[in-house]
């Protein structure tokens, strides 16, 4: 479509190196905006656990101590929110979903992440295996703030950040794709920022 010129608008240009890392329609922020639909849950670590649930109902579970004992990785990555901010070189620590899903990957093609507060989001299993997704409890060397999803959130940085569910408590494996919370409200089922898949039909 032909864009209408906004007379006199110049904008804030990024240097080419930074601009190359911004998906279409995104802007750079140095800060860390918060987007959530409801109140921030505050789950005590003693009451926290994390579950993997197969379609037939069999499951595995870790409590906080057990989760802490799993092998950890440090992830440095750019993140992209559907509300159009991107933040570069964020540093996280967490447990790879390859570790958590080991032995369960034959059981489904999709996952539904479920969370304290009732939030859900759906992802293809292939998008969370192969070193592409983590359960993260540490941001910038510090325990993850509740506003940003602590005690632990999903981290899937190659998709829009609503897929990186805050306050995550487990993953349900599914044989067929189903919409999660925002996907039910018209957001894209997959959410690739480089293809600008913000809303259903994009």
């Amino acid at each position: 479509m032909v864009n209408i010129i906004s007379r006199g608008f110049r904008g804030r240009r990024q240097n080419p190196e930074t601009a190359r890392r911004l998906p279409p329609g995104q802007y750079l922020t140095e800060r860390f905006p918060v987007l959530s639909a409801g109140p921030t849950p505050h789950t005590p670590l003693a009451a926290w656990d994390f579950s993997i649930v197969a379609p037939d109902g069999h499951s595995r579970q870790w409590n906080w101590e057990g989760f802490q004992a799993l092998p950890r990785e440090t992830i440095t990555t750019d993140i992209h929110c559907v509300t159009r901010w991107s933040k570069l070189d964020t540093v996280w620590e967490g447990v790879s979903l390859d570790t958590l899903l080991d032995g369960f990957v034959e059981d489904g093609q999709f996952i539904m992440a479920f969370c304290d507060g009732g939030y859900t989001t759906n992802l293809p299993l292939a998008d969370v295996l192969g070193g592409k997704a983590w359960i993260s409890d540490t941001y910038d060397g510090q325990p993850l703030d509740p506003e940003h999803g602590g005690p632990a959130r999903l981290l899937v940085p190659h998709l829009y950040f609503w897929k990186s569910a805050k306050w995550v408590r487990g993953l349900r494996l599914m044989r067929q794709d189903e919409p999660g919370f925002w996907e039910n409200y018209g957001y894209h089922m997959y959410g690739d920022p480089w293809r600008e898949q913000r809303y259903r039909g994009n």
Binding site: N3, I4, F9, G11, R12, R13, G25, Y27, R84
Partner: peptide, 16 residues
């Protein structure tokens, strides 16, 4: 809504 501004050279910025 997401408002989009376009500069003369085609540069765009969008905010909600």
């Amino acid at each position: 809504v997401d408002v989009r501004l376009t500069a003369e050279d085609g540069y765009q910025a969008v905010r909600s």
